[in-house]
Design a protein around this nucleic acid. Structure first.
Lengths: 335, 335
DNA sequence: CTGTTAGCGCTTTCAT
DNA sequence: ATGAAAGCGCTAACAG
């Protein structure tokens, strides 16, 4: 049915090696033959089988990305950066949406021993040492985004500093009763997210440095999501001594806090200051004060690092990109 | 370096066809040999080359999806459905983010003549007849999501009916000055989106059926985005005779309308009713009245149709999934 | 049941 | 500069 390189060679009256050479822009072919081959290619409407090509080459020109995919706007934005950079280099992006712990493990395992991708990007999930080992043994280049793992390159932010940044902003505003809402603490054992945990650390350090109390009742954890955060925030706000400010480990969770405030008719920022994290698209719309991190760029940069490794370089060190406080309407000086 | 099927065969003392058979769960292998082969496989830590496998099979076990990818929450939700269904069947999903017209054409062209995917999903972009032809000639199964094209199967909604549904809701609420905000009209010539256009049609038909005027000043078009819609809405609301209700062709654009109302201190829904379209995640948070369409399910269903075609069936007819009006806080009877 | 053989379509030596 | 030939690792058809 479809013409093969052999057909082209036959019709053009050349060896099939020559056809391959014109296909690959090799300079070792005379202008005349090249012309002839080219015209036969056009005539036969031949197009090279990518499948055969990648097989012969031993590379797929494809990069896989593992992520708690579409459940988080911040991840989507990172993937945009990944896709754009990959596409510019002619690479394909295959995505794996990890929404359950079981799938996390399965994907990680498959990725390590499948040769269907030249490299792997892991977003927000930290592989365990055994998994890191499997990658190394498989010779699969891996770059992390928004997480860490011993011995693996990655691009991330200083979550501790980010947490402190948000908290210090609230302290500077005069708040002393500052609460925190983040992902489950046992999460590292399952999905293995680390950012929420580190942001909590920053929060704790900032409060301690300011000699402010950090009652454990002010630190709440729940599944990453608006609804869960809303419930937690409502609990906080109904405490005998409710906080005057809440730092949420993500903008999504901050939205839940805003909902809770609305539920209870608590005016923001007059009676409650709210700070989020990430600066996702919607944050601006909501006027949410937040800690911005370069999401798109983190994806793009990770791909660059991966390309470096693909070109034979040894694993570069993990990188950090800067965060920045964006003050909007949900935080104000304590009245 | 890595063990091949040949190594396994040699060590196990069997023919390499036998190894292939145990790999593919063929029943034509004695339990004893199977055991032996299996143990050698484990011993050698052999894993089959997917690359070689797909090449020999002539299929990639991969599906490509073309979409105005991450710029629209509704698309992301559709892709979730796509990925979940694909993953359940062991297929990979490679995504192409189309944010520019040039890339649209390039991707469409490449997809048609590349054999790097067994099938193609196109979201929200309508291929032109020439492109449809190229797919047919290439023998590439294609399923559309949220668009149409002559001769291509797809799953979509009745956008005209959806537009009418939203508009009739506003009419029933007593509104007579109802405006519309949607994507650029000339868009079909470039990106080739069709949904906004059809929703406008439904809006026009509903107004006409109710003998209500539809001044052209009440129909505005701008690039799909919150900011653009905000500008358009502000114009509408500053008209000598401003509308008392605005129907936006998407929730994203409806958010822009809400922003404009806030800018101008116009209370919603008291002085302005707003209806969106899609029921994306954030709509509930905002209390936005909207027309819900099953986004996740549309992706899942499209994959099912694609699998049908992959299994040799001829192209099924285009399908429509139902839409539903979700009334929330942004629409109320005209005061 | 099982071993052997012939490709899948392309890239790459290796001669010429 | 170009043709011929040797794989890449696997599946599937064919003999036993």
């Amino acid at each position: 049915m479809a013409a093969t390189i052999r057909d082209v060679a036959k019709v053009a009256g050349v060896g099939l090696g020559t056809v391959s050479r014109v296909l690959n822009q090799s300079p070792l072919v005379s202008a005349a033959t090249r012309q002839r081959v080219l015209s036969v290619i056009a005539e036969l409407r031949y197009n090279p089988s990518q499948l055969a090509r990648t097989f012969a080459l031993g590379k797929t020109l494809t990069v896989a990305a593992l992520a708690p995919f579409f459940t988080r706007p911040s991840v989507v934005e990172r993937l945009r950066g990944v896709e754009a950079t990959l596409a510019a280099a002619g690479y394909h992006l295959v995505v794996f949406n990890v929404e359950a712990v079981a799938r996390r493990d399965e994907c990680l395992r498959d990725a390590a021993r499948s040769d269907r991708a030249d490299g792997l990007l892991i977003i927000s999930l930290a592989p365990r040492p055994a998994e890191v080992n499997a990658f190394r043994e498989a010779g699969l280049p891996v770059v992390l985004i928004d997480t860490f793992a011993e011995g693996l390159p990655g691009v991330s932010i200083d979550d501790v500093a980010g947490g402190a940044l948000a908290t210090n902003h609230l302290i500077a505003l005069g708040h002393t009763r500052i609460a925190f809402i983040g992902d489950p603490q046992e999460d590292p054992l399952t999905f293995n997210f680390t950012s929420s945990h580190d942001r909590l650390l920053g929060y704790q350090q900032a409060l301690a440095a300011a000699n402010l109390p950090l009652p454990s009742a002010y630190q709440r954890h729940g599944l990453h999501g608006r609804y869960e955060a809303r419930v937690l925030a409502r609990e906080l706000l109904q405490l005998p001594e409710p906080p005057s400010a809440i730092f949420a480990a993500s903008d999504t969770q901050a939205m839940g806090v805003l909902e809770a405030a609305r539920d209870l008719d608590i005016p923001v920022p007059q009676a409650l200051a709210v700070v989020g994290f990430d600066d996702i698209d919607i944050a601006e719309y909501l006027g949410l004060t937040t800690v911005r991190q370069p999401l798109f760029e983190s994806g793009a940069r990770a791909v660059e690092l991966l390309f470096l490794m693909l070109s034979g370089a040894s694993a570069p060190p993990a990188e950090q990109v800067p965060v920045e406080l964006v003050v909007r309407r949900t935080s104000a000086p304590l009245g």
